[in-house]
Structures are given as structure tokens and as C-alpha cells.
Design a protein around this nucleic acid. Structure first.
Ligand code: FES
Ligand code: FES
Lengths: 158, 158
DNA sequence: GCTAATCTGTACTTCTTAGTCAAGATTACC
DNA sequence: GGTAATCTTGACTAAGAAGTACAGATTAGC
């Protein structure tokens, strides 16, 4: 249960593109330099984001990457799912059952119930955040988190 | 951001030991068979749980594993941290900064603020759950989740 | 002491994720 | 058309996680 490199770098590349504003674009070398990631890796990750429809690419000279939609239409939860999958995939209990065909408690499993609860807790945050929210500075982002906390009853700032 | 095999199997082994009740114990082959995991892998994972102080082992004939403390004193959040680390480790922003020594926005990073919020959301669930809760059946566990939901304002059952 | 059942530790193989590389395709500009 | 800047693709290598194997140490019972 760790954040993956794909998730971290992918989201940062997306935020970087968001900074460019409507109509703005950046090349791979520019993104690479801005985020301190190698050009090859940036290219690999941007490709994933492109195939998922979050960014669009222009080839050739004067080419580059740009957001495919306005920042407020890019939900972070969806981005994270593309970059690193879900915490508790629906297939999880099938693939992690060891040698048995399925978890030996699968008809009545309290562990599964817990995983679901954790997944929902994560979704509560990520499905409410859009790229627009991440384009603010850290202090404003903290305010956003505080607002979500109040609305949902969660205390997300410890 | 996926559950790891260590987390899944480790927690299941712990639950299985919990079923044995006070003073009960199980051998590696017994746990292995009950959970459908190979004996070698069960041994490897139980070793981690032992070093972290959640279970204790007795060697020799008549040996086996048992819980080191009562189930209500075993917090799932602590178990998960041992088995799979934290979602957003404190060192994360240092180790995932690419070639730069640090995230280029590290003095003011909205992404970091989001990761923290997700981490707290997860902790809200996992720090409230103990092994005792997981020894119930799935329906009772769902009630537990519902109770946590009401108390915290979260809606964890969708 | 001997044996059989058990945990312990380390090394090994296999699979997935992270990251790199190079050749190819596309486009703006001259 | 030529050139240089750009994205595209697949293959490659490196590192980490998942899973296996086996020799060693410990203990109960005889
Ligand atoms: S059914 Fe998935 S852990 Fe039991
Ligand atoms: S400081 Fe960690 S993502 Fe920016």
C-alpha cells in the first residue's frame, strides 16, 4: 500500500501542464527539466496519460503536450486509477488467494469488508479533487482539504 | 497504490490465529493449509509479524505460533505499517524527486498536501480497527464500518 | 541419546515495476 | 525537398517484491 513512482511523477507532470493554462503546452524536455525526471521516463508516463485521454500530444517541430480538457474536468481519482490502479481491485480476492482457488473465507470475509472501507475512504478524497484544485499553492490546497473535511466530517489534517 | 501480497496474507494469518482464542496456537503447516498459502511463504510472513511483536513463536515439537497480545490490543493500522509500509512515507518526497535533489516544488507543493490528506483518510479507518473487530463475520464487520462511518461523518459503504 | 516435529535464517528463482535506449514517424520552417 | 525539433514505439536493463528451497537450531517425548 504505497504510492508508486508512476503515480507521483504522472500527477506532477499533469500539474505542470496545468500551470501552462488554456492553450499552453510543453515539450518532453521542458517537462523533464521542470520536474527533475529523465526525458525517457517522462515520455513513457505521458504516453499513458495520453492514451487515457487526459493530455493530447502534437508531433513535429513546435509540438508538445497539453491538457486534453480543462483542469476542473480532470478528476484526480481517475488519473490515479490509470497511473497506479485501485487500492483494492475487484479482482484482488481472486488473484491473492494463494494455492486455493479463492480466499478460504470468501463467502464471509471480514478482511474484505475492511479493504472495501479503506478503498471508499481513499475515494472520498480523490473523487472530490480535480486538477484545478492542485493548481493552487500548498496553503490554498490545505484550505481545500479543510473544506472537504468539514463537509464530510473527516478530519484530514490530523 | 495497491494492497500488497504481504499485507493481504499477513493480515489473514493474523486473523486465523485470532480465531484460536486465548492460549490457542497453530503451526505453520496448519496456517498454511487454512489460508491456502505455501508453508514457506507463511513462514516468511509470520517471521515479520513475530519481529514486530504481534505474534510469538514456540519452537520444537508441540511448537507453533500464537498472538502475542489480546486481539483488542492489536491495531490493524500498526500491522499494515509493518507488512507494507505507509502509503505516503515521510521520506517519499526525498526519494521520488527524480534527478533533482528534491521535488522542484518542495517548498510549496499542493501534491504533497493531497497525499497527506489521503494518508490521513486511510489512517482514520485503520487506526480504529483492531484484530478483535476482524474476528467477527462479514456482516458484523459491515456494521462496525457503518458505526465508524456515522461517528466520523464518512460514508464508507458507498 | 535419539527421533520427529517444529521454528529460523539465508540464499535462490521468478515476476513486476522502474527506468533507459535507439530507431522510426511526424511536422514547421526554410 | 531538407533539416531540425518533436512525439512514438518496442526492446532492453536494473531494482524490488513475491515466492521457494534447504540446511540449521530447538524442543517434547521416548
Ligand atoms: S475474500 Fe478477499 S480477503 Fe477474504
Ligand atoms: S514535495 Fe512531494 S510531490 Fe512535491
Amino acid at each position: 500500500m504505497k504510492l508508486s513512482a508512476n503515480e507521483e511523477y504522472g500527477l506532477r507532470c499533469l500539474v505542470r501542464l496545468g500551470y501552462e493554462g488554456e492553450g499552453g503546452s510543453l515539450t518532453i524536455p521542458e517537462i523533464s527539466h521542470a520536474e527533475g525526471v529523465s526525458p525517457a521516463l517522462a515520455a513513457k508516463i505521458l504516453r499513458v496519460l495520453r492514451k487515457a485521454g487526459f493530455v493530447k500530444a502534437a508531433r513535429g517541430k513546435e509540438g508538445g503536450y497539453a491538457l486534453a480538457r480543462p483542469p476542473e474536468a480532470i478528476v484526480i481519482g481517475e488519473v490515479m486509477e490509470v497511473l497506479g490502479g485501485r487500492l483494492f481491485e475487484s479482482s484482488f480476492c481472486d488473484t491473492h488467494s494463494g494455492q486455493a482457488a479463492i480466499c478460504t473465507r470468501s463467502v464471509d470475509c471480514s478482511v474484505r469488508s475492511l479493504w472495501r472501507a479503506v478503498q471508499v475512504a481513499v475515494d472520498q478524497v480523490l473523487s472530490k479533487a480535480t486538477l484545478r484544485d492542485l493548481l493552487q499553492n500548498e496553503e490554498e490546497m490545505n484550505s481545500w482539504v479543510r473544506a472537504i473535511s468539514d463537509r464530510s466530517g473527516l478530519r484530514l489534517l490530523q
